[in-house]
Amino acid sequence: MEAKEQIRQTITNHPVVLFMKGNPQAPQCGFSATAVQILKACGVNTFASVDVLADPDIRQGIKDFSNWPTVPQLYVKGEFVGGCDIMKEMYQAGELQKQLEDLASA
């Protein structure tokens, strides 16, 4: 399957998707680690993650798909939310918690 189609299906089938380097248990980059921590701080403990290091097509594909040249990238309900900086800013402003409210696990 083409990378673009694969990405489209992933963000459609999962309410929260983090494209990152490594996986949530073992992030391979500080920014990806921060993104995982922020999601958890918002109460989202289960989310889909895609390790871009495992697939060069996805790694390039997600950059083109989002028009965003860096990883991590967060998608919520099929929409691009942003990278690590934006997640941090939104978290500090309480906006991300709100957006993820109904997706947080009890």
Binding site: F31, T70, G82, E89
Partner: peptide, 28 residues
């Protein structure tokens, strides 16, 4: 919005990010 602003900045350094010359740029 935040995404559009950063996309605008990324435009100016896209080539440097693609080449790996620039690895990470966090921005306000």
């Amino acid at each position: 919005n935040r995404v559009k602003r950063q996309q605008r900045v990324y435009q100016t350094v896209r080539g440097k990010l693609d080449s790996g010359e620039l690895h990470a740029l966090s921005m306000q």
